[in-house]
Design a protein around this nucleic acid. Structure first.
Lengths: 212, 212
DNA sequence: CCAGAATGGATAGTTCTACTGTCCATAATG
DNA sequence: CATTATGGACAGTAGAACTATCCATTCTGG
Protein backbone atom coordinates (compact mmCIF):
# COMPACT_ATOMS: atom_id res chain seq x y z
CA UNK A 1 0.00 0.00 0.00
CA UNK A 2 1.13 3.56 -0.55
CA UNK A 3 1.01 6.74 1.49
CA UNK A 4 -2.62 7.68 0.82
CA UNK A 5 -3.93 4.27 1.78
CA UNK A 6 -1.71 4.02 4.84
CA UNK A 7 -3.06 7.37 5.93
CA UNK A 8 -6.66 6.35 5.31
CA UNK A 9 -6.32 2.98 7.07
CA UNK A 10 -4.68 4.42 10.14
CA UNK A 11 -6.58 7.68 10.32
CA UNK A 12 -3.32 9.63 10.53
CA UNK A 13 -2.89 12.55 8.07
CA UNK A 14 -0.27 12.14 5.34
CA UNK A 15 1.78 15.07 6.66
CA UNK A 16 1.84 13.48 10.09
CA UNK A 17 2.88 10.10 8.74
CA UNK A 18 5.78 11.81 7.00
CA UNK A 19 6.67 13.51 10.25
CA UNK A 20 6.69 10.19 12.11
CA UNK A 21 8.92 8.71 9.40
CA UNK A 22 11.32 11.62 9.79
CA UNK A 23 11.36 11.18 13.55
CA UNK A 24 12.02 7.46 13.21
CA UNK A 25 8.80 6.44 14.97
CA UNK A 26 7.68 4.60 11.88
CA UNK A 27 10.17 2.42 9.99
CA UNK A 28 10.64 3.44 6.33
CA UNK A 29 8.61 1.58 3.74
CA UNK A 30 10.14 -0.94 1.40
CA UNK A 31 11.59 0.98 -1.53
CA UNK A 32 10.27 0.03 -4.98
CA UNK A 33 12.37 2.66 -6.75
CA UNK A 34 14.84 5.30 -5.60
CA UNK A 35 12.04 7.60 -4.54
CA UNK A 36 8.96 5.45 -4.05
CA UNK A 37 8.08 3.13 -1.18
CA UNK A 38 5.47 0.56 -0.24
CA UNK A 39 3.98 0.14 3.24
CA UNK A 40 2.54 -2.93 4.93
CA UNK A 41 -0.13 -3.87 7.45
CA UNK A 42 2.61 -3.69 10.08
CA UNK A 43 2.88 0.02 9.36
CA UNK A 44 -0.84 0.46 9.92
CA UNK A 45 -0.64 -1.43 13.21
CA UNK A 46 2.31 0.65 14.34
CA UNK A 47 0.48 3.88 13.55
CA UNK A 48 -2.46 2.65 15.57
CA UNK A 49 -0.15 1.85 18.45
CA UNK A 50 1.42 5.31 18.25
CA UNK A 51 -2.04 6.85 18.34
CA UNK A 52 -3.01 4.77 21.34
CA UNK A 53 0.15 5.69 23.22
CA UNK A 54 -0.18 9.41 22.53
CA UNK A 55 -3.95 9.92 22.58
CA UNK A 56 -5.02 7.48 25.25
CA UNK A 57 -1.77 7.02 27.11
CA UNK A 58 -0.87 10.69 26.93
CA UNK A 59 2.79 9.93 26.23
CA UNK A 60 5.00 12.51 24.50
CA UNK A 61 6.33 11.37 21.13
CA UNK A 62 9.85 11.04 22.51
CA UNK A 63 8.62 8.45 25.00
CA UNK A 64 6.62 6.70 22.32
CA UNK A 65 9.85 6.40 20.34
CA UNK A 66 11.64 4.88 23.31
CA UNK A 67 8.79 2.45 23.94
CA UNK A 68 8.75 1.34 20.31
CA UNK A 69 12.51 0.88 20.39
CA UNK A 70 12.12 -1.29 23.48
CA UNK A 71 9.45 -3.35 21.75
CA UNK A 72 11.70 -3.82 18.74
CA UNK A 73 14.71 -4.67 20.89
CA UNK A 74 15.57 -8.25 21.71
CA UNK A 75 15.38 -8.20 25.46
CA UNK A 76 13.27 -10.64 27.45
CA UNK A 77 9.63 -9.70 27.99
CA UNK A 78 10.30 -8.97 31.62
CA UNK A 79 13.18 -6.62 30.88
CA UNK A 80 11.32 -4.96 28.03
CA UNK A 81 8.39 -4.22 30.30
CA UNK A 82 10.83 -2.70 32.75
CA UNK A 83 12.08 -0.32 30.06
CA UNK A 84 8.53 0.55 29.05
CA UNK A 85 7.60 1.31 32.65
CA UNK A 86 10.54 3.70 32.93
CA UNK A 87 9.25 5.60 29.93
CA UNK A 88 5.68 5.63 31.14
CA UNK A 89 6.79 7.10 34.43
CA UNK A 90 8.64 10.00 32.83
CA UNK A 91 10.98 12.26 34.76
CA UNK A 92 9.91 12.69 38.37
CA UNK A 93 8.90 16.16 39.53
CA UNK A 94 11.15 17.85 42.06
CA UNK A 95 10.22 17.92 45.71
CA UNK A 96 11.94 19.20 48.82
CA UNK A 97 14.81 17.04 50.05
CA UNK A 98 13.22 16.46 53.45
CA UNK A 99 9.88 15.31 52.07
CA UNK A 100 11.64 13.10 49.54
CA UNK A 101 13.69 11.46 52.26
CA UNK A 102 10.63 10.88 54.40
CA UNK A 103 8.79 9.35 51.44
CA UNK A 104 11.74 7.14 50.54
CA UNK A 105 11.84 5.81 54.07
CA UNK A 106 8.11 5.20 54.07
CA UNK A 107 8.33 3.25 50.84
CA UNK A 108 11.37 1.30 51.94
CA UNK A 109 9.66 0.24 55.15
CA UNK A 110 6.62 -0.80 53.19
CA UNK A 111 8.69 -2.90 50.81
CA UNK A 112 10.58 -4.52 53.66
CA UNK A 113 7.47 -5.33 55.70
CA UNK A 114 5.98 -7.07 52.70
CA UNK A 115 9.17 -8.89 51.78
CA UNK A 116 9.56 -7.11 48.44
CA UNK A 117 12.77 -6.51 46.64
CA UNK A 118 14.47 -3.17 47.28
CA UNK A 119 14.28 -0.85 44.29
CA UNK A 120 17.01 1.58 43.36
CA UNK A 121 16.11 5.26 43.74
CA UNK A 122 17.09 5.87 40.10
CA UNK A 123 14.12 3.74 39.04
CA UNK A 124 11.71 6.26 37.61
CA UNK A 125 8.65 4.43 38.85
CA UNK A 126 10.06 4.63 42.34
CA UNK A 127 11.17 8.25 41.91
CA UNK A 128 7.69 9.25 40.76
CA UNK A 129 6.05 7.34 43.57
CA UNK A 130 8.36 8.98 46.09
CA UNK A 131 7.60 12.40 44.61
CA UNK A 132 3.85 11.77 44.83
CA UNK A 133 4.07 10.57 48.44
CA UNK A 134 6.30 13.50 49.34
CA UNK A 135 3.84 15.92 47.75
CA UNK A 136 0.98 14.39 49.72
CA UNK A 137 2.93 15.03 52.89
CA UNK A 138 3.82 18.59 51.90
CA UNK A 139 0.15 19.28 51.30
CA UNK A 140 -0.71 17.87 54.69
CA UNK A 141 -2.54 14.80 53.44
CA UNK A 142 -0.94 12.22 55.67
CA UNK A 143 -4.10 10.16 55.74
CA UNK A 144 -3.39 9.10 52.19
CA UNK A 145 0.06 7.82 53.02
CA UNK A 146 -1.11 6.21 56.27
CA UNK A 147 -3.14 3.75 54.25
CA UNK A 148 -0.37 2.87 51.83
CA UNK A 149 -0.25 -0.73 52.97
CA UNK A 150 -3.89 -1.25 52.03
CA UNK A 151 -3.38 0.39 48.65
CA UNK A 152 -0.39 -1.85 48.04
CA UNK A 153 -2.42 -4.95 48.78
CA UNK A 154 -5.01 -3.90 46.20
CA UNK A 155 -2.34 -2.86 43.69
CA UNK A 156 -0.87 -6.33 43.98
CA UNK A 157 -4.24 -7.89 43.22
CA UNK A 158 -4.58 -5.64 40.16
CA UNK A 159 -1.07 -6.52 39.00
CA UNK A 160 -1.80 -10.23 39.31
CA UNK A 161 -4.80 -9.71 37.09
CA UNK A 162 -2.67 -7.73 34.64
CA UNK A 163 -0.17 -10.54 34.34
CA UNK A 164 -2.91 -13.11 33.87
CA UNK A 165 -4.25 -11.04 31.01
CA UNK A 166 -0.86 -11.01 29.31
CA UNK A 167 0.44 -14.41 30.26
CA UNK A 168 -1.97 -16.55 28.30
CA UNK A 169 -0.39 -15.54 25.03
CA UNK A 170 2.00 -17.82 23.22
CA UNK A 171 4.20 -15.65 21.02
CA UNK A 172 6.82 -13.56 22.78
CA UNK A 173 6.21 -10.61 20.46
CA UNK A 174 2.56 -10.67 21.30
CA UNK A 175 3.31 -10.82 25.01
CA UNK A 176 5.47 -7.74 24.77
CA UNK A 177 3.00 -5.73 22.74
CA UNK A 178 0.12 -6.88 24.91
CA UNK A 179 2.14 -5.95 27.96
CA UNK A 180 2.74 -2.46 26.66
CA UNK A 181 -0.89 -1.98 25.76
CA UNK A 182 -2.10 -3.49 29.01
CA UNK A 183 0.18 -1.20 30.98
CA UNK A 184 -0.72 1.99 29.14
CA UNK A 185 -4.41 1.40 28.59
CA UNK A 186 -4.70 -0.51 31.85
CA UNK A 187 -3.69 2.56 33.82
CA UNK A 188 -6.35 4.64 32.07
CA UNK A 189 -9.03 2.01 32.33
CA UNK A 190 -8.43 1.39 35.99
CA UNK A 191 -8.34 5.11 36.74
CA UNK A 192 -11.68 5.49 34.95
CA UNK A 193 -13.26 2.63 36.86
CA UNK A 194 -11.90 4.03 40.09
CA UNK A 195 -13.40 7.43 39.34
CA UNK A 196 -16.80 5.91 38.60
CA UNK A 197 -16.57 3.92 41.79
CA UNK A 198 -15.55 7.03 43.73
CA UNK A 199 -18.59 8.79 42.38
CA UNK A 200 -20.83 5.95 43.51
CA UNK A 201 -19.30 5.60 46.96
CA UNK A 202 -19.08 9.35 47.49
CA UNK A 203 -22.75 9.79 46.64
CA UNK A 204 -23.54 7.54 49.60
CA UNK A 205 -20.92 8.91 51.96
CA UNK A 206 -20.81 12.61 51.11
CA UNK A 207 -23.98 13.13 49.14
CA UNK A 208 -25.86 14.76 51.95
CA UNK A 209 -23.17 17.18 53.05
CA UNK A 210 -23.94 20.87 52.65
CA UNK A 211 -21.96 23.14 50.31
CA UNK A 212 -18.56 24.38 51.47
CA UNK B 1 4.32 38.73 53.08
CA UNK B 2 5.41 40.23 49.78
CA UNK B 3 6.33 38.82 46.42
CA UNK B 4 9.89 37.73 47.19
CA UNK B 5 8.87 35.84 50.30
CA UNK B 6 5.87 34.25 48.64
CA UNK B 7 8.16 33.07 45.88
CA UNK B 8 10.73 31.72 48.32
CA UNK B 9 8.14 29.95 50.50
CA UNK B 10 6.42 28.27 47.59
CA UNK B 11 9.44 27.59 45.43
CA UNK B 12 7.77 29.26 42.44
CA UNK B 13 9.79 31.97 40.62
CA UNK B 14 8.54 35.54 40.92
CA UNK B 15 7.87 35.81 37.18
CA UNK B 16 5.75 32.67 37.35
CA UNK B 17 3.78 33.92 40.34
CA UNK B 18 3.00 37.07 38.38
CA UNK B 19 1.93 34.92 35.45
CA UNK B 20 -0.42 32.90 37.67
CA UNK B 21 -1.88 36.14 39.02
CA UNK B 22 -2.49 37.35 35.46
CA UNK B 23 -4.14 34.06 34.56
CA UNK B 24 -6.36 34.21 37.61
CA UNK B 25 -4.97 30.98 39.08
CA UNK B 26 -3.85 32.86 42.16
CA UNK B 27 -6.16 35.45 43.74
CA UNK B 28 -4.67 38.95 43.97
CA UNK B 29 -3.06 39.95 47.23
CA UNK B 30 -4.61 42.39 49.62
CA UNK B 31 -3.70 45.88 48.42
CA UNK B 32 -1.86 48.07 50.91
CA UNK B 33 -1.54 50.98 48.49
CA UNK B 34 -2.63 51.57 44.89
CA UNK B 35 0.27 49.53 43.61
CA UNK B 36 1.47 47.33 46.44
CA UNK B 37 -0.03 44.13 47.78
CA UNK B 38 0.40 41.72 50.65
CA UNK B 39 0.07 37.93 50.38
CA UNK B 40 -0.91 35.39 52.98
CA UNK B 41 -0.24 31.77 53.92
CA UNK B 42 -3.28 30.89 51.83
CA UNK B 43 -1.39 32.10 48.77
CA UNK B 44 1.53 29.85 49.61
CA UNK B 45 -0.80 26.87 50.04
CA UNK B 46 -2.50 27.62 46.76
CA UNK B 47 0.81 27.81 44.93
CA UNK B 48 1.78 24.47 46.42
CA UNK B 49 -1.50 23.03 45.24
CA UNK B 50 -0.96 24.41 41.74
CA UNK B 51 2.49 22.84 41.70
CA UNK B 52 1.11 19.51 42.82
CA UNK B 53 -1.64 19.54 40.19
CA UNK B 54 0.71 20.44 37.34
CA UNK B 55 3.91 18.62 38.32
CA UNK B 56 2.56 15.48 39.93
CA UNK B 57 -0.93 15.40 38.46
CA UNK B 58 0.23 16.45 35.01
CA UNK B 59 -2.75 18.77 34.52
CA UNK B 60 -2.56 21.67 32.06
CA UNK B 61 -2.92 25.08 33.69
CA UNK B 62 -6.36 25.57 32.16
CA UNK B 63 -7.59 22.48 34.02
CA UNK B 64 -5.89 23.61 37.18
CA UNK B 65 -7.83 26.85 36.89
CA UNK B 66 -11.10 24.98 36.52
CA UNK B 67 -10.30 22.75 39.48
CA UNK B 68 -9.45 25.72 41.66
CA UNK B 69 -12.65 27.45 40.61
CA UNK B 70 -14.58 24.31 41.57
CA UNK B 71 -12.84 24.25 44.96
CA UNK B 72 -13.71 27.90 45.53
CA UNK B 73 -17.28 27.41 44.39
CA UNK B 74 -20.03 26.69 46.87
CA UNK B 75 -21.28 23.35 45.64
CA UNK B 76 -21.53 20.32 47.90
CA UNK B 77 -18.41 18.19 48.29
CA UNK B 78 -19.95 15.46 46.18
CA UNK B 79 -20.77 17.80 43.31
CA UNK B 80 -17.43 19.55 43.54
CA UNK B 81 -15.62 16.26 43.27
CA UNK B 82 -17.70 15.53 40.19
CA UNK B 83 -16.50 18.74 38.57
CA UNK B 84 -12.92 17.98 39.52
CA UNK B 85 -13.16 14.51 38.00
CA UNK B 86 -14.41 16.01 34.75
CA UNK B 87 -11.33 18.19 34.59
CA UNK B 88 -8.97 15.41 35.50
CA UNK B 89 -10.35 13.29 32.73
CA UNK B 90 -9.79 15.93 30.06
CA UNK B 91 -11.28 15.67 26.58
CA UNK B 92 -11.58 12.08 25.41
CA UNK B 93 -9.53 11.00 22.40
CA UNK B 94 -11.42 10.14 19.25
CA UNK B 95 -12.05 6.54 18.32
CA UNK B 96 -13.95 4.84 15.52
CA UNK B 97 -17.71 4.93 15.90
CA UNK B 98 -18.02 1.13 15.85
CA UNK B 99 -15.44 0.54 18.56
CA UNK B 100 -16.96 3.32 20.64
CA UNK B 101 -20.40 1.79 20.39
CA UNK B 102 -19.07 -1.62 21.33
CA UNK B 103 -17.27 -0.19 24.32
CA UNK B 104 -20.32 1.78 25.43
CA UNK B 105 -22.39 -1.38 25.34
CA UNK B 106 -19.75 -3.28 27.28
CA UNK B 107 -19.66 -0.62 29.98
CA UNK B 108 -23.41 -0.30 30.17
CA UNK B 109 -23.80 -4.06 30.64
CA UNK B 110 -21.17 -3.98 33.34
CA UNK B 111 -22.93 -1.16 35.16
CA UNK B 112 -26.29 -2.89 34.91
CA UNK B 113 -25.00 -6.27 36.08
CA UNK B 114 -23.55 -4.61 39.16
CA UNK B 115 -26.59 -2.49 39.83
CA UNK B 116 -24.78 0.80 39.28
CA UNK B 117 -26.33 4.01 38.16
CA UNK B 118 -26.26 4.70 34.42
CA UNK B 119 -23.85 7.44 33.49
CA UNK B 120 -24.46 9.89 30.66
CA UNK B 121 -22.10 9.56 27.69
CA UNK B 122 -21.20 13.26 28.01
CA UNK B 123 -19.51 12.48 31.31
CA UNK B 124 -15.82 12.84 30.51
CA UNK B 125 -14.80 10.05 32.84
CA UNK B 126 -17.13 7.75 30.96
CA UNK B 127 -16.06 9.10 27.58
CA UNK B 128 -12.41 8.51 28.41
CA UNK B 129 -13.10 5.06 29.73
CA UNK B 130 -15.08 4.20 26.61
CA UNK B 131 -12.26 5.52 24.43
CA UNK B 132 -9.69 3.42 26.30
CA UNK B 133 -11.81 0.27 26.04
CA UNK B 134 -12.48 0.94 22.38
CA UNK B 135 -8.76 1.40 21.75
CA UNK B 136 -8.00 -1.88 23.48
CA UNK B 137 -10.42 -3.58 21.14
CA UNK B 138 -9.01 -1.84 18.07
CA UNK B 139 -5.56 -3.05 19.05
CA UNK B 140 -6.85 -6.57 19.45
CA UNK B 141 -6.43 -6.75 23.23
CA UNK B 142 -9.80 -8.22 24.11
CA UNK B 143 -8.35 -10.08 27.06
CA UNK B 144 -8.09 -6.80 28.89
CA UNK B 145 -11.76 -5.99 28.41
CA UNK B 146 -12.83 -9.57 29.17
CA UNK B 147 -11.68 -9.11 32.75
CA UNK B 148 -13.38 -5.78 33.26
CA UNK B 149 -15.65 -7.13 35.95
CA UNK B 150 -12.70 -8.16 38.07
CA UNK B 151 -11.03 -4.81 37.59
CA UNK B 152 -14.23 -3.07 38.60
CA UNK B 153 -14.44 -5.08 41.80
CA UNK B 154 -10.91 -4.00 42.73
CA UNK B 155 -11.55 -0.40 41.65
CA UNK B 156 -14.52 -0.34 44.01
CA UNK B 157 -12.36 -1.51 46.88
CA UNK B 158 -9.83 1.22 46.10
CA UNK B 159 -12.57 3.83 45.91
CA UNK B 160 -13.93 2.76 49.29
CA UNK B 161 -10.48 3.26 50.71
CA UNK B 162 -10.27 6.67 49.00
CA UNK B 163 -13.49 7.82 50.60
CA UNK B 164 -12.43 6.56 54.01
CA UNK B 165 -9.28 8.63 53.69
CA UNK B 166 -11.30 11.75 52.97
CA UNK B 167 -14.36 11.18 55.10
CA UNK B 168 -12.76 11.42 58.52
CA UNK B 169 -12.30 15.16 58.12
CA UNK B 170 -14.60 17.62 59.79
CA UNK B 171 -14.42 20.85 57.80
CA UNK B 172 -16.12 20.86 54.42
CA UNK B 173 -13.33 22.92 52.89
CA UNK B 174 -10.80 20.39 54.05
CA UNK B 175 -12.86 17.54 52.64
CA UNK B 176 -12.95 19.16 49.23
CA UNK B 177 -9.28 19.96 49.13
CA UNK B 178 -8.39 16.55 50.49
CA UNK B 179 -10.65 14.99 47.89
CA UNK B 180 -8.94 16.83 45.08
CA UNK B 181 -5.52 15.90 46.34
CA UNK B 182 -6.52 12.32 47.01
CA UNK B 183 -7.94 12.02 43.51
CA UNK B 184 -4.97 13.54 41.71
CA UNK B 185 -2.16 12.14 43.82
CA UNK B 186 -4.08 8.95 44.46
CA UNK B 187 -4.10 8.12 40.78
CA UNK B 188 -0.33 8.59 40.58
CA UNK B 189 0.39 6.72 43.77
CA UNK B 190 -1.77 3.79 42.85
CA UNK B 191 -0.31 3.63 39.35
CA UNK B 192 3.17 3.60 40.88
CA UNK B 193 2.30 0.83 43.32
CA UNK B 194 0.70 -1.12 40.51
CA UNK B 195 3.83 -0.80 38.39
CA UNK B 196 6.03 -2.00 41.23
CA UNK B 197 3.67 -4.91 41.80
CA UNK B 198 3.67 -5.70 38.08
CA UNK B 199 7.44 -5.80 38.16
CA UNK B 200 7.37 -8.21 41.08
CA UNK B 201 4.72 -10.50 39.65
CA UNK B 202 6.16 -10.40 36.14
CA UNK B 203 9.59 -11.38 37.44
CA UNK B 204 8.00 -14.61 38.69
CA UNK B 205 5.70 -15.21 35.73
CA UNK B 206 7.73 -13.99 32.76
CA UNK B 207 11.23 -13.78 34.19
CA UNK B 208 12.42 -16.94 32.53
CA UNK B 209 11.09 -16.27 29.06
CA UNK B 210 13.63 -15.86 26.27
CA UNK B 211 14.08 -12.56 24.36
CA UNK B 212 11.60 -11.73 21.61
C1' DC C 1 2.17 7.16 -24.73
C1' DC C 2 1.05 11.12 -22.15
C1' DA C 3 -1.47 14.62 -19.22
C1' DG C 4 -2.64 15.00 -14.65
C1' DA C 5 -2.60 13.28 -10.06
C1' DA C 6 0.20 11.18 -6.33
C1' DT C 7 4.61 10.30 -3.93
C1' DG C 8 8.85 10.94 -1.15
C1' DG C 9 11.80 14.10 0.69
C1' DA C 10 13.36 18.55 2.27
C1' DT C 11 12.47 22.68 4.57
C1' DA C 12 9.92 26.31 6.54
C1' DG C 13 5.93 27.89 8.99
C1' DT C 14 2.15 27.45 12.56
C1' DT C 15 -0.21 26.75 16.94
C1' DC C 16 -0.34 26.03 21.67
C1' DT C 17 1.41 25.97 26.30
C1' DA C 18 4.00 27.65 29.90
C1' DC C 19 6.79 30.36 31.08
C1' DT C 20 10.82 34.23 31.17
C1' DG C 21 12.73 38.88 30.43
C1' DT C 22 12.55 43.74 30.20
C1' DC C 23 10.65 48.30 31.49
C1' DC C 24 9.17 51.57 34.46
C1' DA C 25 6.59 54.40 37.72
C1' DT C 26 5.88 53.86 42.46
C1' DA C 27 7.01 52.11 47.31
C1' DA C 28 9.61 50.39 50.89
C1' DT C 29 13.96 50.33 53.50
C1' DG C 30 18.46 50.88 55.79
C1' DC D 1 17.69 59.73 50.56
C1' DA D 2 20.09 56.43 47.78
C1' DT D 3 19.22 51.83 46.86
C1' DT D 4 16.47 47.95 46.32
C1' DA D 5 11.95 45.77 45.69
C1' DT D 6 7.30 45.76 43.86
C1' DG D 7 3.34 45.47 40.75
C1' DG D 8 1.80 45.67 36.31
C1' DA D 9 2.13 45.67 31.28
C1' DC D 10 3.90 43.63 27.38
C1' DA D 11 7.10 41.33 24.43
C1' DG D 12 9.98 37.41 23.78
C1' DT D 13 11.30 32.45 24.16
C1' DA D 14 11.50 27.34 24.11
C1' DG D 15 9.67 23.04 23.19
C1' DA D 16 6.25 19.94 21.31
C1' DA D 17 3.57 18.41 17.61
C1' DC D 18 2.22 19.08 13.80
C1' DT D 19 0.99 21.48 8.92
C1' DA D 20 2.08 23.65 4.50
C1' DT D 21 4.72 24.38 0.50
C1' DC D 22 7.95 22.92 -3.08
C1' DC D 23 9.69 20.03 -6.35
C1' DA D 24 11.75 16.36 -8.92
C1' DT D 25 10.17 12.00 -9.88
C1' DT D 26 6.74 8.21 -10.47
C1' DC D 27 2.40 6.28 -11.23
C1' DT D 28 -2.05 5.88 -13.68
C1' DG D 29 -6.22 6.28 -16.60
C1' DG D 30 -7.64 7.20 -21.26
Amino acid sequence: MRMAELSAESGVPVATVKYYLREGLLPPGERTSPNQARYSAAHVQRLRLIKALTDVGGLPLASVGAVLAAIDGDETPHRTMGLVQQELAGPAPEVSAEAAQWASGLLEDLMRRNGWKRYPAENRTVANLVAALATAKELGQEKLTDRLEEYLELALRVAELDIEVVDGLTSVDRIIEAGVIATVLGDRIFAGLRHLAQEKVSRQALGGRPPG
